[in-house]
Write a protein that binds this DNA or RNA. Structure first.
Length: 299
DNA sequence: CCGCAGCCTCCCCT
DNA sequence: AAGGGGAGGCTGC
């Protein structure tokens, strides 16, 4: 039924044995789920056997939590370097040091959010893929964005292993007519994707320039792209370029800041600036805690 | 500089 | 049962 999910028997033969990614991942089932499937990435889901399965670039892996130990495995036929996995999951960075630098000691709202999602991390996804998925995100819920990504992958993405497709490259997307993207339920976002694809193909260095640039400069560059405003740019920079100071302000964060920090009638831009100043160098991580916490309370 | 409707489509609500 | 309102925004007026 679901193309990303294989049955239990097939899994055993297709996949290499489980390997550890480290005893001290700090993850709980909750914070792992929130990291993989809480709005940073739209490419993870639970298999029949209860593992997480996800894909980026041409990599497919599965993850599971065995006690405190995060484990991973990849299809036998594919080559997935361990370093790639560590980098994507941001396990190589000093997590506790970042937490320590957040102002939770003087901010009880943040403190409570961190406690309830300890282990939550910011992923380091490929920038191009991150930009693509957030171009589709406007006025869409997470399940809807996941479906759009899946449709695009199945239609225009390379098949990595049987049944699992990579997201389409920007080069491929540039070849696709806007009307065909609309057929994939993209709606008015089809125009953004087509126009952005054309620009990126004409300027092949664009995304690597963005990634190498300081935060503010990268943000301005991304916002030159059609369909990319402040929020989408910040999401791409935070989840796809390792710019941890980016502070995306969506409706959830706006609601949280307004209610909990008493910032009524502030514009989205003002809230983003407040977030970067108040939460500091790792504002984006604080944002993710607040975002997850706010959504949890709504459930 | 600010505020606002319109944009595709799906889903939930009455 | 048909129709309105809103959903992790951006653009142009």
């Amino acid at each position: 039924m679901n193309p990303l999910v294989s049955d239990t028997q097939a899994e055993a033969t297709i996949y290499a044995p489980w390997r550890s990614l480290g005893e001290k991942s700090c993850y709980s089932e909750d914070s792992l789920a929130e990291t993989l499937d809480g709005g940073q990435s739209f490419r993870w889901q639970i298999t029949d056997s209860g593992f997480w399965q996800g894909a980026w670039n041409s990599f497919v892996i599965q993850l599971r939590l065995k006690g405190d130990c995060l484990q991973w495995r990849a299809p036998r036929e594919s080559t997935v370097p361990r370093e790639e996995v560590l980098r994507y999951l941001a396990i190589d960075t000093s997590y506790e040091d970042m937490i320590s630098e957040l102002p939770w000691r003087s901010d009880s709202v943040l403190e409570e959010a961190i406690q309830s999602f300890h282990g939550l991390r910011i992923l380091k996804q490929p920038l191009g893929e991150t930009l693509f998925s957030f171009l589709l995100s406007s006025v869409k819920s997470i399940p809807q964005i996941k479906e759009l990504c899946l449709l695009a992958a199945q239609q225009y993405g390379e098949e990595i292993i049987p049944g699992v497709h990579a997201l389409p490259t920007w080069a491929r997307l540039a070849e696709v007519e806007e009307v065909d993207l609309r057929k994939l339920k993209f709606g008015y976002r089809a125009k953004y994707v087509s126009a952005t694809a054309n620009r990126l193909v004409n300027e092949p260095e664009f995304l690597s320039i963005v990634e190498a640039a300081p935060y503010e400069e990268g943000r301005s560059l991304l916002m030159e792209l059609p369909g990319v405003g402040g929020k989408v740019a910040d999401c791409a920079l935070l989840f796809g370029a390792g710019k941890l100071e980016a502070f995306p302000v969506d409706t959830w964060i706006a609601k949280a800041l307004s209610a909990r920090y008493n910032l009524n009638d502030w514009s989205l831009d003002q809230l983003a600036t407040f977030g970067r100043i108040h939460f500091g160098r790792f504002a984006g991580l604080a944002q993710q805690f607040l975002f997850s916490f706010e959504r949890k309370k709504a459930r």
